[in-house]
């Protein structure tokens, strides 16, 4: 049964992918990209990767669509037909695809429990997590504790990308906090936006602090948090969202999340452990791990949320007044 759902989703993904490439209207291609993300999120659920699915749904179907739309609004929404012949790229693609398929012939079969990936490291994580870390969600324990260095690196990449966007586009302040007249007309959207804004924030907090026990954690929560504020900015205009969370505050928050993460590492060094060794944070190693994971997940959440929101602010502030 699982195989059937898996296959159907893959076929749907293929159809969506082909239509995205064929589509001339960039607006339609963006919407299809969002559908593509949602389909892959469903596929991740079928393949038992619930944490990943949550992230993909929030990012792919949520924020990346909005960013693409913002870019299209700043540039153009029609794609000119290509002038060169598409034969050469097609041949390159087919040859690369063939080579990759040839490469898979040696791979262990899909779902095979004896595959080399499953025999090394991962069983140790699964076996040791209840005793050493004491939380049920192994993904969180690997992410935050066993591979804390990796996560710190990823966070640094996000931080750098946020800084890069800010350097490239810069933030333009606009006079007046008035609502865009176009939005003022859409009463229903504003009422529903007001209704859902607190609920989304509440859900983000739940995902943030429930990450030890169920699917969730700093990355997902940060993205959902940002989505909530982006919804607010869409419904009430950028000016009002800025009064809620000013741009200057966001810049501080971006750095603060990173500092919190590194600070936890340094704190554990000061207490006599190694960098990011949470065992020394409390008297009992397991509660030390708990404390460390909660703190660094908080750092991740703060940085991710503020980078996402900052990127949105920067893109949006480029648009002329009264334009969505």
């Amino acid at each position: 049964m699982e195989i059937l759902i898996d296959t159907i989703l893959l076929v749907l993904l293929m159809i969506t992918g082909f239509s995205i490439v064929r589509m001339r209207s960039l607006l339609a291609a963006t919407m299809l990209t969002s559908i593509y993300s949602l389909l892959s999120a469903s596929l991740f659920v079928v393949l038992d990767a619930v944490d990943v699915a949550l992230t993909e749904a929030a990012i792919g179907a949520g924020i990346s669509t909005i960013l693409l739309l913002a870019t299209i609004a700043l540039t153009t929404d029609r794609e000119k037909p290509p002038q060169r012949t598409p034969m050469l790229p097609l041949i390159v693609v087919i040859i690369t695809g063939m080579a990759l398929i040839y490469g898979t012939l040696d791979m262990p079969h899909f779902g095979n429990p004896q595959a080399p990936v499953h025999l090394h490291v991962a069983p140790a994580y699964l076996h040791d997590t209840p005793g050493e870390i004491g939380i049920p969600n192994v993904v969180t324990s690997v992410l935050a504790s066993y591979r804390g260095y990796d996560t710190l690196g990823e966070l640094a990449v996000i931080f750098t990308a946020g800084a890069g966007v800010l350097t490239l586009l810069g933030y333009r302040t606009r006079g007046g906090n008035s609502m865009d007249p176009g939005i003022r007309k859409l009463l229903i959207l504003r009422v529903i936006g007001k209704l859902f804004f607190p609920l989304i924030l509440l859900f983000a907090l739940y995902v943030q602090f429930h990450g030890d026990y169920g699917p969730g954690g700093g990355f997902q929560a940060g993205v959902i948090f940002a989505t909530g504020f982006i919804l607010y900015a869409l419904a009430f205009g950028l000016g009002n969202a800025q009064r809620l969370i000013p741009h200057q505050l966001l810049r501080i928050m971006v750095a603060f999340g990173m500092l919190l993460y590194i600070g936890v590492g340094i704190e554990s060094m000061l207490l006599g452990g190694k960098f990011l060794e949470y065992n020394v944070l409390a008297d009992d190693p397991v509660s030390g791990q708990h404390l460390g994971i909660i703190l660094i997940e908080l750092g991740v959440g703060i940085t991710v949320a503020s980078v996402m929101l900052m990127i949105y602010y920067v893109f949006r502030s480029r648009q002329p007044e009264g334009d969505l």
């Binding site: 859409l186 229903i188 959207l189 529903i192 209704l195 859902f196």
Partner: peptide, 16 residues
């Protein structure tokens, strides 16, 4: 609850 609210809103926004 979410579906009940978001569905009609999305359709309304599209029609608008």
């Amino acid at each position: 609850y979410f579906m009940i609210f978001t569905g009609p809103t999305a359709v309304h926004a599209l029609a608008q």
